[in-house]
């Protein structure tokens, strides 16, 4: 097993709905969720769904990913700035290198991340795609 099924289950709302956290004291937003505010140190945080739109800052084409992604190589990864200013690293769906320019507008969708072999679970989560 290359993925820990119970850990995936625990995090599924983060993975599929992009639920992060917002600090109730200073308003800072975080993704993935944090338990202590990185801005003001407060432990008073609430769940916050992240915006699904953003801009691409940088991308890489990865030819040798870790074993659970090996059969999908090459995979494309992007560093994305969401419209609330939060940065996220995500796989890029339907990647077309021509369109992977810094500043390109991107939008989150849900895609398959990996399958744990033939009989194992199928793992789904956010991926971003370049808007036409």
């Amino acid at each position: 097993m290359n993925v820990i099924p119970i850990a995936y289950w625990r995090n599924r709302k983060v993975y599929t709905r992009m639920i992060g956290t917002k600090c109730k004291d200073c308003g800072a937003e975080f993704f993935p969720p944090v338990r202590v505010c990185k801005k003001c140190g407060s432990r008073n945080l609430e769940e916050k769904e992240m915006p699904k739109n953003g801009s691409l800052l940088a991308y890489t084409k990865l030819s040798e990913p870790a074993q659970e992604f090996k059969e999908y190589a090459p995979i494309y990864l992007g560093l994305i700035r969401l419209d609330n200013g939060v940065n996220v690293i995500s796989m890029i769906a339907d990647a077309d290198e021509e369109k992977l320019k810094a500043g390109a507008r991107v939008q989150a969708t849900v895609r398959k991340w990996t399958e744990d072999g033939k009989g194992g679970l199928v793992y789904y989560g956010y991926k971003f795609r370049v808007l036409q």
Partner: peptide, 13 residues
């Protein structure tokens, strides 16, 4: 469907 699409992801879309 691409390698990372199935009926769950397409249903979601």
């Amino acid at each position: 469907a691409s390698y990372d699409e199935d009926i769950l992801t397409m249903s979601y879309e």
